[in-house]
Design a protein around this nucleic acid. Sequence first.
DNA 1: ACAAAAGTGTTCGCTTTACACCCATGT
DNA 2: ACATGGGTGTAAAGCGAACACTTTTGT
Lengths: 229, 229
Amino acid sequence: MKNQNIKVAVDAVVFGYEKEQLFILLVQKKFGKSSNAWMLPGGMVQDDEGLQTAVNRELKEETGIEINYLEQLYTFGNDIYRDSRTRVISITYLALANPQKLQLKPSSKIKEAKWFNVNEMPSLAYDHSKFIKKGIERLKSKLSYQPIGFDLLDDEFPFSHLENLYKTILGKELDRRNFRKKIMSFGILEETNKKVSMGSGRPAKLFRFNKQKYRALEKEGIYFEIKYA
Amino acid sequence: MKNQNIKVAVDAVVFGYEKEQLFILLVQKKFGKSSNAWMLPGGMVQDDEGLQTAVNRELKEETGIEINYLEQLYTFGNDIYRDSRTRVISITYLALANPQKLQLKPSSKIKEAKWFNVNEMPSLAYDHSKFIKKGIERLKSKLSYQPIGFDLLDDEFPFSHLENLYKTILGKELDRRNFRKKIMSFGILEETNKKVSMGSGRPAKLFRFNKQKYRALEKEGIYFEIKYA
DNA sequence: ACAAAAGTGTTCGCTTTACACCCATGT
DNA sequence: ACATGGGTGTAAAGCGAACACTTTTGT
């Protein structure tokens, strides 16, 4: 077999949620061909690191962000010209994070890292908009059969934040009472005895997602599912 | 960036179904390191072909089989020593086929291609048993929310074949009447006016899956779902 | 006292489930 | 006539959908 010459990259679609808006993290490189274009964080995989290690490294190097959830999304490699220089395939990952702290490393090859509202994305380098489309699809569908929404919220959150997250991401209205009943019925939310005032109106209890309990229930064959999708 | 040296392979988990048994297609190579071990069909991607093209080519070269359904499964590349010679990542695909005709090409690098019952798999080269595990999981879950079972059956089939397919793959008993009612309610099965005698007992009508109709219904937002999973 | 968000139950309809008998053919 | 698998309906229970008022706070 002739010597193969295909490069392997990883890229991440990192979602953040804040103030009833869904964001995606993009970066702008300092050097290189696409140094003016916005793109997803990512880069070439090193010979001595696993794929997931590579994503984590790139995310740390390029954005310094803390990731709450990471899963493989899709591998793009049908279009052999997707990168105009050499053949590159990209293994993409979906990540969830709290949108706060981005800390660009001083040594970084990154000019800027910034959150963009999913509805106001700039034009993107390579075929990264395809990656994002795939990411959004996956996020939407996953939301309704796995409790990953919590990884987009603070550790402790008022119930309305969860409700709004579902509304925002799924782009649908949903019945407050039914939604709450459903989520509560799983018994995976712990009530703290703290409250927060949300500016005006009655203060809300803070809840916390109990991951152990969820894993236990999952083993018993009781599955999370939100039908209002 | 230093020159990257990672090889890119594709491998396929090809499922076949016959006589109430689920099979996976394995091959044995004529030459090379693992020439005595059974493995999944697949191989290195060529520089000038897309990933999916590569799987199709390998399947044709190695087994000559006709594929009814193909989707990307998962990309394995966290373990950097999964192939002991060089770093290789594998993009795996899930495929469905009718188990009949395998035609090894005379020129082929393959010694033998053979269907194995999923419950009687030999030991496999590399980490291919992980690939299979992933494939089975995916097949099971997909069966309950997409009408892909038909791609494992003949074009025209008696209803009981479909029923047994679900029973076999999901490994569960299911109620004949409820199952039939459910499937029929989607209106995606066309009745032919042929019948087959299944040896003994009343002859069964033959049905045909109407793909156009399914696509149409899908667009209207009516989704296939079998709850008995 | 008023505005604003949090919190909470009940009824109705549809879907799922459980369940058993007759039908058409081959031997 | 009997054995074998094909084909079908109905009743009960559980789940999803629709719906509005009370509570607690800040101003």
